[in-house]
Design a binder for these strands. Structure first.
Length: 281
DNA sequence: ATGGCAGAAGCATTCTGA
């Protein structure tokens, strides 16, 4: 079962590129972030024509997440459980549309768009840390229920200095601070593992390149898009790849897809092995 | 320290992102 995540930076602007990518790769589940559209205006038809179910949680102009899945998702939840807010200074009525989760093929798929935080001195940074505390509470609740988890999305955090093209320049700053890494580790709590690092121990692998300063051409990127899975699923993990090719498209998203392949005995969909179609820069 | 590039809203320019 192929599970992918992609911050597309506007579903409407990127629609044809996303459909092309689906046709090439044939993922079973695709988690999208930064759809930037209200639910009534989401382009459902192109995905439904390809046989996918579409679940969305969007808002005007900013944020927005969606799950595209061959198997019909069940127990769809949009945002955090109410209890998660109360301890962490986030009003549910002010919630930004950054999380959607569902049960698919026996796994709890949790699709997140973690706030960027702007800079460490910004109020947005406090929001980011509080949002990650809510996410930790949300995962505690899933763990209590005994769920097998796949937590995928744009985390806006480089987990280690190996995940930054120039750590000397950026260490301690936004997306690379100890406070953010601590907050992320408090979500993972050792119960979730970074799929990509099962297979690749070296630096030089990025999922995001700034639009500015020819960052992609110079390969000055960051690895901030991640797929974390329950430890119990690790024996099922066949691969994790970053498909950097879409970043070379005309009018690309600044992020590229990340995808894992899980071999699940009880999965009743198609098994496609597309590893040969992926390249690392 | 700042800008650079991109998208949305909406029609000039501002806000936001990372």
């Amino acid at each position: 079962m192929l599970i992918a995540t992609w911050n597309v930076n506007s579903i409407r602007t990127r629609l044809l590129q996303i459909v092309d990518w689906i046709n090439q790769v044939n993922p079973d589940i695709l988690c999208l972030q930064e759809t930037k559209v209200i639910d009534d205006s989401f382009p459902f038809e192109p995905f439904e024509k390809l046989g996918y179910s579409v679940e969305v949680y969007g808002q005007k102009s900013y944020n927005g997440v969606a799950i595209i899945s061959k198997i019909k998702p069940e127990n769809i939840e949009k945002g955090f459980n109410g209890y998660s807010y109360s301890d962490h200074n986030i009003e549910s009525s002010l919630e930004q549309k950054r999380l959607i989760s569902a049960d698919i093929g026996g796994i709890k798929i949790i699709n997140v768009y973690v706030p960027n935080g702007s800079s460490l001195a910004s109020g947005k940074f406090d929001y980011k840390i509080n949002w990650l505390k809510c996410l930790a509470s949300f995962l505690d609740e899933q763990e209590k229920k005994g769920e097998l988890i796949c937590l995928a999305g744009d985390f806006n955090i480089a987990p280690t200095n190996l995940d930054i093209h120039d750590p000397n320049k950026y260490e301690g700053g936004i997306m690379a601070s100890q406070a953010e890494r601590d907050a992320l580790n408090n979500v993972l709590k050792g119960r979730l593992i970074d799929s990509f690092r099962i297979f690749e121990k070296n630096t030089g692998h990025w999922s995001w390149w700034d639009y500015r300063n020819n960052a992609f051409e110079l390969n000055k990127g960051w690895r901030i898009d991640h797929i974390y899975i329950s430890k119990e699923l690790s024996s099922k993990l066949k691969s994790c790849v970053i498909d950097s090719l879409p970043r070379a498209n005309l009018r690309p998203s600044d992020h590229v897809p990340v995808m894992i392949d899980l071999s699940l005995n009880d999965f009743n969909g198609d098994f496609i092995d597309d590893e040969d179609n992926f390249f690392e820069i």
